[in-house]
Amino acid sequence: MAEYVQGIPIMRPYIDQDNQGYWDAVKNHKLVFQHCSKCDKYHHPPRPMCPSCHSQDTLEWKESSGKGIIYSFVMFTTNKMAYPAFKLPYAVVLVEMEEGVRITANTHEIEPDEVQVGLPVEVMFEELPDGQTLYRFKKREA
């Protein structure tokens, strides 16, 4: 699922100093999360300060296991709300990772009626025709 319509640009992430490490890792087919070494806590999306200890220099990038379960999802079925770069229908899933943080992405080879809360998934990476690298989720054995 989630196939692209040719000729319509896919929106790119706005990369700034706070999330650069995250997107650099994606480029190398790695999923990393921001981690405070002082509090031993993960945060996502990346942010400039640890909200627990207010430190700005204990934030590091830690590679994720890439595994999680679908926490919730949206199925786009009509043109009214969907972004035109995507072929319908497509799902956007909110995945709760083993590290405890949640991230959104599309799915890979999961039929619409298979997408459900609690489904075990793992991350995979794809190279888009426009040169950017994105991640999506496929089924995994629980």
Partner: peptide, 14 residues
């Protein structure tokens, strides 16, 4: 400055 405005906002409030 080489950092985000979000970073600087948090920093100056701290």
């Amino acid at each position: 400055i080489g950092r985000s405005e979000w970073y600087s906002a948090c920093q100056c409030i701290k």
